[in-house]
Design a protein around this nucleic acid. Structure first.
Lengths: 247, 247
DNA sequence: TAGACAGGTTAAGTCTGGGTTAAGAACGGG
DNA sequence: CCCGTTCTTAACCCAGACTTAACCTGTCTA
C-alpha cells in the first residue's frame, strides 16, 4: 500500500539512520538530504510525497527550505523541531508547514503524522477543490471539545466558532494536553513539553499559564469543565467522548 | 493468556528485579540481559516477542543494540530512557524503536505499552498492509471491579457509574489493593506502596484513610463488602468474580 | 472473664499544592 | 525608540488533604 516517497532532510546521522530504517520498514521510499540546499535540490528532482524537515540544518535552515518549497509546490511538509523552542506554531502558521513534531517523538508518532498528512492530501485532491491550504481540513486533526474547536492542522482554536488567540505557551500547553487524549499529564511532563527539559523556573509559571488558558477556553475559569486539575499529579483535558456523555 | 516472551535488557538490578517479577506475574516469560552484548546474544537465541532496552548499558549501549537488532529482525523494541537526558541524542536512539518510556515509569505503564505493541504487531501481521493504528488510545488502563470502575490514565474512579473524587492517598491505596487482584495485602506493604518505605508515622493513619475510602466506595462504610479487613494481615479488595458469585 | 491486641472512628490541627493577581522584564514590530 | 503583548516571578490566599491523638469496639487467649 505505502509506496510513497519521503524526503528526509536532517544533518544528524544519529537521527537520520534509524529513522530512515524505520520508514523503509514501513514501506516508504526514503531519500535523504544532509543540508538545506541538498533538500531543495532533491525535492525538485524526486518530487516526494512528503518532506520531513529538521529546523536546524547546515547551508540553509529548515524554515528557509520550507518557505521556498512552499512557494513552488503543495507538497506536504512536516517540521521536526526542538522542544520548547519558539516556533511551535509560528513556523507552521507563517511558513506553511502541514504539521510539526517536537523532540522526543517515537517513530510511530511520526509515521502516524505522515499517514495523516497523506490522507489529508488524498482527500483534498479527491474533491476537486482549490489549493490544499484553502479547503476545509480533513476531520482527523480537528477536535471538538464542547464549545471549543481545535484545528491542529491550521493552528487554530475557536470557541463557539469564534477564533480565539492563544499565545505561544498557551498553545503548546493545550497541544501537550490534547496529545494525551484525555489522560492526565504530570506537571513535570507538561513543563518538559512546553518549556523543554532543561528549563528551570518557578513551578508556579505553569499554573499561571493554565489560568490564562482557562480564561480563554472555560465558561467559568474558576470552575473548569475542560481543563481539570488532578491534585498531586498535574492536569488533564477532558476527551471529546466525555463531553457528549453528560447532559 | 499471555505466554509471550520478553527480553529485558538493563544492568540495574534495582530496576530489573521488581520489573521482571511484575512481568512474570502478568504471565510473560522473562529473560534478562545485563549488558548490550548479552542482550544481542539472547535476542538471537530466544527470539523474544518484545525487547525492552535500557539506553545506558555496559558493553554495548542500548541504541547500538537497537540498531543491530533492527538490522536483523522486526521484533518490537521498547526503549527505556532516563528523563532529562540530552534529547538530541535520545531522539535518534529512540527512532529505531517501536515505543519508548522515560524513567521513572510504573510497571503498569510498561505493561500497557507492551500489550499495545503486541496488539499492534498482531494486527499488522493479520491484515497484510495495515495502516497501523495511528493513535495509541489510552489503552486497557480501565479496570472494572464490581461496582467500581477505575480509569488509571485519567485518575478517575466511579462507583456504579457515578464518578467519585478520591484524594491522592485514597487513590493510591485503592491502586495498591487493585494491583493485588483480590489477594490480601499486608498492612506493611500497603504503607510501603502508598507512603513509601521510609515513611514513619502513626500506624493508625492507614486505618483512617481506609475509612475514608470506604465512606466513598461502600454502601455502608461500617459493613464493608468491597474493602475487607483481614485481621492480623491487612486488607483486601474483593475480586470481580467473587461479586458475581453471591447474590 | 480479664487482659491484650488489632483495628475502627472521630475530631482537631497543620500542611501543602494550587489558585490568583499584579508587577516588571523581555520580546517583537513599527 | 516606543508601545503592546507575552512571559516569568513573587506574594498572598485558600480549600482540601493529611496526620495525629484520643477513645472505642471486637476478638482471641489463658
Amino acid at each position: 500500500m505505502a509506496d510513497e516517497t519521503i524526503l528526509l532532510a536532517d544533518d544528524d546521522p544519529m537521527i537520520v539512520d534509524p529513522l530512515a530504517l524505520q520508514l523503509r520498514r514501513e514501506g516508504f521510499t526514503v531519500h535523504i538530504a544532509v543540508d538545506g540546499e541538498d533538500a531543495l535540490a532533491q525535492a525538485r528532482r524526486v518530487t516526494p510525497d512528503v518532506v520531513l524537515l529538521d529546523i536546524m540544518m547546515p547551508k540553509k535552515q529548515g524554515w528557509e527550505v520550507c518557505r521556498e518549497l512552499r512557494a513552488e509546490s503543495d507538497v506536504p511538509i512536516i517540521m521536526l523541531t526542538a522542544r520548547g523552542e519558539e516556533m511551535d506554531r509560528i513556523l507552521g502558521l507563517e511558513l506553511g508547514a502541514d504539521d510539526y513534531l517536537t523532540k522526543p517523538f517515537s517513530a510511530r508518532e511520526l509515521i502516524a503524522r505522515i499517514r495523516a498528512v497523506l490522507r489529508r492530501v488524498a482527500m483534498d485532491s479527491a474533491r476537486q477543490t482549490a489549493p490544499a491550504a484553502e479547503t476545509a481540513p480533513a476531520d482527523d486533526d480537528v477536535v471538538q471539545l464542547g464549545r471549543v474547536t481545535v484545528d491542529r492542522a491550521r493552528y487554530q482554536v475557536a470557541i463557539d466558532g469564534e477564533p480565539v488567540h492563544l499565545s505561544q505557551r498557551e498553545y503548546s500547553l493545550l497541544m501537550a494536553l490534547l496529545d494525551a487524549q484525555g489522560a492526565a499529564v504530570k506537571r513535570g511532563d507538561l513543563v518538559d513539553q512546553v518549556w523543554g527539559a532543561e528549563w528551570i523556573g518557578d513551578p508556579r509559571t505553569l499554573d499561571v499559564h493554565m489560568r490564562w488558558l482557562r480564561e480563554k477556553l472555560e465558561r467559568d475559569p474558576s470552575k473548569p469543565e475542560l481543563l481539570l486539575t488532578i491534585r498531586g499529579v498535574g492536569y488533564r483535558l477532558v476527551a471529546p467522548e466525555e463531553i457528549a456523555a453528560h447532559g
